[in-house]
Design a protein around this nucleic acid. Structure first.
Ligand SMILES: O=c1ccn([C@H]2C[C@H](O)[C@@H](COP(=O)(O)OP(=O)(O)OP(=O)(O)O)O2)c(=O)[nH]1
Ligand SMILES: [Mg+2]
Length: 770
DNA sequence: TGGCAGGCGTT
DNA sequence: AACGCC
DNA sequence: GCCA
C-alpha cells in the first residue's frame, strides 16, 4: 500500500534533501502527524535523529488515542534486547493510515521471514539430582563428586525455573587445574548469571565453591569492582575474619583465571600485581571507590491527554524488554547458620487480593518481609535484594518442566479440544483490548510510570524477561488510569499489578522515587553490560563473558575478543543500529526495494511492516514483506536471493546479510542497507511470503511482539497454534506444552479471518501496541 | 508453583 | 545445543 | 513480575 506513487516521485528529491540537510536534533515525540511528517522526513533522511552513543535503553513507542477498557491480564512476555529499545513514537491521530502500511486486512502479500526468538528459554541445562548439599552430615550416597561434598552446589546456568540444580560435568583430570581448591567468591551469591558462570568454571576445573566462609578456603575471587577494603569489611562483619591468612590467594577473576587458562596450571606468582585486587594487599589499604554511576534514566515523555475511562481498565504500555533474564535469585540458602536471618515469607500469601476483596491484609506482611529481607541481604548488592529475597525467581524461562497450566491438566499428550469452556478468561488477554500505547497527557501517574519504566528497563538489561514483561504490563495499566494511584490498595486491584508492584507504586507516590531504582543506578557494571548488549549479535551470555574477561570498551572487544561476523558488524555500526529511523526514511528504503523487485517482476508487492505499519513515528528497522499473487514461495525466494539481493548489493544499497535464509524453506533475509550517499546503515528485514499466507504474515510482522505473544497464547489455549504461516488447529502438545503435532491449517490467507476464528476483535495496527 | 509464543539463523 | 533475534 |  503506501503511496508508492508519491514516494516514488519524491524519492529522489528526498534523497537529495537528505544529503544536504542538517540534522535537527529532535527527539520525536508524538506530535501531530501529517505535518509533522514532513519534518520527520527531512530529519530522517538527513540522518538519524539522534544517535545515542551509548545505548540508551529507552525505548518506547507511544501512540495516542486510547480507549481502553478491560483488563489485560494474560500472560505475555517480552523482552527484547535493548537495542530495540528505543521505541517508536506514534504520530497521533488518525493520519496513520495514510502512512502507508499494509492493508490491514485483506490478504495481502508478503511472506514471511521471521526471526529469532526471544526470551529463550534457556534451558535448563539439566537438572541435577536432588539436592545434596554438602554438609558433613549428609550421608552421601554412593559417590558424590568432590565439589558437592566439600562445597556448595551452585544453581544451574540459564534460567531454569528450578532454582537449584546444576550438574556440572568436570573436565578430565588432566585439565583440572584447580583441583582440590576451595574457592570463596565475593560477592558470594550465585544469583548473577555471570558470577554463576564463573563458579561453574571453577568446579569444572576441579575446584569447589563455598557460599560461606570457611577456614579451609584456599582462594578468594573477588568481583572486579570490589576493593580489598570492602572485602575485609565483609569478611569481618560476616565471619569475624579480621585478616586474611597469607596462604589464601585473593585475586580477581579476570587476570588470575586468564592466567590459569593460559598456563594450564595455577600461576606460580599468585600474588603478582596483576592479580591484586583494588585496594591492594600489599599496598595496603586504599580506598577506592567505585564507579559512580550514571544516571541513566530520564524517562520519557508521553503524556498527552486523553482521558479514558479508568477504572479497572488497564492500558499498558510496552516497553521493550530484553531477552532473557539473567540472574535469578533464590533464596540464599545459607548453609548452616549463616546470616540470613530467616527471611520471612516475604511473599506473603496474598489471599487473592485481586478479587478485590481484602485489600488490606497483606501489606503488613510485605513490610515485615521487606525488613527481614533487607537485613538478610544487606551485604549483597542491592540489585538482588528485593528480588530475591522475597520472591521466587522470576526468571526462568524455559525450563521445561512440565506441564502447562491448570487446565491442560492431562499432562500427557492431549489434544486440545476446541471448546474448552472458560478454562481461561479470554477477555484478559491483552490482544483483546485496544492498546495504542498512549497515555493521557497529564496522566497523574506520569512519575510512577517513568520510574516503573526505568525499573523495567533495568530488568530488561539484566535480561530478566519475565519481570520485564510484568513491568511493561503494569505501565500499560497505569497509562490508562485517569486518577493518581497512591496506595497499594488502589494499585493492587488493577490488572497486572500485584502486591509487589503495588508497594512500589505506593512508594513512588509517596516519595517520588524508588530506592530500588536508585540502587540500580549505582552499579557501574551496568554501563558496561549495557554497552555490550547494544551490539547486534551480543546477548547477556556473551556480554558477561567479556566483562569477566576484563573487557570494557568496544575497542577492547575489537582488539582482544573473538567476534562473530555479525558481532563485528554490530560493533562497526553500533551507533547506526542503535539509531531509530524516521518514517520517511523507512519509506524510502522500502521504495528502493519495491522498485528493484518490480523491475524484475512487476507483480511483486512490497509492504512495509513492523512498527512502521503500526504508525510509529520512528522505527528501529525496516521490515518489508515481499509477496506476489501467483508465484510460489520458491519463485519468491529465488528471485529475492538470486536477483534482488545481488542487484541491490551491487547498487550498494544493501550492505551485508546478517541472517540469510539458507535452506530452501527459508523465508527471510536480514541484513543492512543504506540510502545512496549515506553512510548510515540500517537494519532491514525482508520476509518472503507466499500469497496465501499473507494474513498470518501480516499479523506476525505487524506485531508488536507482545501483541503477537498474546494472540498466540490465546490460540494455544484454544488448542490451536498461530505462527507466521497460519493458524492451525488440533495441535497436540506434551508436557512442556511442547508441540507434538503440527496441527492442521485452519486459515492463513486472511488476517481478519484468523482474528475472527480466535475471537479476537480485529484492530488497526496502531492499536496493537501492547 | 509452573507458565509466560513460535520459529529460525549462526556458532 | 546454546545463543541471539524477529 | 503477575496469574491461575
Ligand atoms: O520477539 C519478537 C519480535 C518481533 N516479532 C514480530 C512483531 C514485530 O512487530 C515484528 C518486527 O520485529 P521488529 O523487531 O522489527 O519490531 P518492531 O515492532 O518493528 O519495532 P522496531 O521499531 O523496534 O523495529 O516481528 C515477534 O513476533 N516476536
Ligand atoms: Mg521493525
Amino acid at each position: 500500500m503506501t503511496n508508492n506513487r508519491d514516494l516514488d516521485k519524491s524519492i529522489t528529491a528526498k534523497i537529495a534533501f537528505f544529503k544536504g540537510a542538517i540534522i535537527l536534533d529532535v527527539e520525536d515525540d508524538e506530535t501531530g502527524f501529517p505535518d509533522a511528517r514532513l519534518i520527520d522526513a527531512e530529519r530522517a533522511l538527513v540522518d538519524p535523529p539522534v544517535k545515542p552513543k551509548r545505548p540508551k535503553a529507552t525505548k518506547r513507542e507511544s501512540s495516542d488515542s486510547d480507549r481502553l477498557r478491560d483488563r489485560q491480564n494474560e500472560f505475555e512476555i517480552v523482552t527484547t534486547k535493548m537495542r530495540k529499545a528505543a521505541r517508536e513514537d506514534f504520530p497521533k491521530i488518525v493520519g496513520i493510515k495514510r502512512v502507508s502500511s499494509a492493508p490491514d486486512m485483506a490478504p495481502k502479500k508478503v511472506q514471511k521471514v521471521d526471526k529469532g526468538k526471544q526470551p529463550a528459554s534457556r534451558a535448563p541445562k539439566k537438572t541435577t539430582p536432588p539436592k545434596l548439599q554438602h554438609s558433613s552430615t549428609l550421608p552421601t550416597p554412593p559417590k558424590m563428586e568432590w565439589y558437592k561434598e566439600v562445597g556448595d552446589v551452585p544453581r544451574a546456568l540459564g534460567r531454569s525455573k528450578i532454582p537449584k540444580p546444576a550438574n556440572i560435568k568436570l573436565r578430565p583430570e588432566s585439565q583440572q587445574y584447580m583441583k582440590n581448591l576451595i574457592v570463596y567468591f565475593y560477592q558470594n551469591n550465585d544469583y548473577d548469571e555471570g558470577r554463576r558462570l564463573r563458579i561453574h568454571k571453577v568446579i569444572e576445573l576441579g575446584g569447589a565453591w563455598v557460599k560461606e566462609w570457611r577456614d579451609d578456603v584456599t582462594h578468594v575471587i573477588v568481583d572486579e569492582r570490589i576493593n580489598y577494603t570492602e572485602l575485609l569489611k565483609h569478611l569481618e562483619e560476616r565471619y569475624g575474619v579480621k585478616q586474611i591468612p597469607a596462604h589464601i590467594i585473593v585475586t580477581n577473576w579476570d587476570w588470575y583465571m586468564g592466567r590459569v587458562f593460559d598456563l594450564k596450571c595455577l600461576p606460580l606468582e599468585p600474588h603478582g600485581p596483576l592479580y591484586r585486587i583494588r585496594g591492594a594487599p600489599d599496598p595496603q589499604v586504599s580506598t577506592t571507590n567505585l564507579h559512580s554511576s550514571s544516571p541513566q534514566l530520564e524517562s520519557q515523555d508521553s503524556l498527552q491527554l486523553k482521558p479514558s475511562k479508568g477504572k479497572a481498565a488497564a492500558r499498558e504500555e510496552r516497553s521493550p524488554s530484553r531477552i532473557e533474564d539473567s540472574f535469578r535469585q533464590e533464596a540464599p540458602k545459607s548453609r548452616k547458620r549463616t546470616i540470613s536471618p530467616d527471611r520471612q515469607p516475604s511473599r506473603s500469601p496474598r489471599p487473592d487480593s485481586r478479587s478485590g476483596l481484602s485489600s488490606g491484609h497483606k501489606y503488613s506482611d510485605a513490610l515485615s518481609a521487606a525488613i527481614g529481607q533487607a537485613k538478610a541481604f544487606e551485604h549483597l548488592p542491592l540489585d538482588f535484594e528485593e528480588d530475591e529475597a522475597s520472591s521466587r525467581p522470576s526468571t526462568s524461562e524455559g525450563t521445561g518442566t512440565d506441564t502447562e497450566s491448570e487446565e491442560e491438566r492431562p499432562r500427557k499428550i492431549r489434544k486440545t479440544s476446541p471448546m474448552q469452556f472458560s478454562k481461561f478468561d479470554q477477555s484478559k488477554f491483552q490482544c483483546m483490548t485496544k492498546n495504542d500505547g498512549t497515555s493521557t497527557s497529564g496522566n497523574p501517574n506520569q512519575r510512577t510510570i517513568e520510574v516503573l519504566q526505568e525499573m523495567g528497563k533495568y530488568y530488561d538489561m539484566m535480561q530478566d524477561s519475565w519481570r520485564t514483561v510484568a513491568y511493561r504490563k503494569a505501565v500499560t495499566t497505569l497509562k490508562k488510569q485517569t486518577e493518581w494511584i497512591t496506595t497499594k490498595e488502589q494499585a493492587i486491584r488493577l490488572p497486572c499489578i500485584g502486591e509487589r508492584l503495588a508497594a512500589k507504586i505506593e512508594e513512588i507516590a509517596m516519595t517520588n522515587g524508588l530506592r530500588r531504582l536508585e540502587s540500580t543506578k549505582t552499579d557501574s557494571l551496568d554501563e558496561n553490560l549495557r554497552l555490550f548488549l547494544g551490539i547486534y549479535g551480543v546477548g547477556l551470555t556473551q556480554a558477561h563473558k567479556w566483562i569477566q574477561q576484563g573487557y570494557r570498551t568496544l575497542d577492547d572487544l575489537k582488539e582482544k575478543a573473538h567476534l562473530t561476523k555479525n558481532q563485528n558488524i554490530g560493533i562497526e555500526h553500533y551507533d547506526d543500529f542503535a539509531t531509530r529511523i524516521s518514517r520517511i526514511e523507512v519509506e524510502v528504503h522500502g521504495q528502493i526495494v519495491r522498485k528493484a523487485l518490480q523491475k524484475i517482476d512487476p507483480l511483486f508487492e512490497v509492504t512495509i511492516m513492523g512498527s512502521y505499519r503500526r504508525g510509529a513515528k520512528t522505527c528501529g528497522d525496516i521490515d518489508c514483506v515481499i509477496t506476489i499473487p501467483k508465484g510460489s514461495i520458491d519463485y519468491i525466494r529465488n528471485t529475492v536471493v538470486d536477483e534482488l539481493v545481488p542487484q541491490l548489493m551491487k547498487e550498494d544499497f544493501l550492505k551485508v546479510g546478517l541472517a540469510t535464509t539458507s535452506k530452501d524453506n527459508g523465508s527471510k533475509w536480514h541484513g543492512a542497507s543504506a540510502l545512496p550517499g549515506s553512510s548510515v546503515w540500517r537494519r532491514i528485514d525482508l520476509l518472503l511470503v507466499p500469497w496465501n499466507e499473507m494474513g498470518a504474515a501480516l499479523i506476525y510482522f505487524t506485531g508488536n511482539d507482545l501483541f503477537n505473544r498474546s494472540v498466540r497464547l490465546l490460540a494455544s489455549k484454544k488448542g490451536m497454534r498461530l505462527n507466521q504461516r497460519g493458524l492451525f488447529k488440533d495441535v497436540m502438545r506434551g508436557p512442556n506444552r511442547a508441540k507434538i503435532t503440527e496441527g492442521t491449517l485452519v486459515e492463513s490467507r486472511s488476517e481478519k479471518r484468523i482474528f475472527e476464528i480466535l475471537g479476537v476483535p480485529w484492530r488497526p495496527p496502531h492499536d496493537r501496541q501492547i
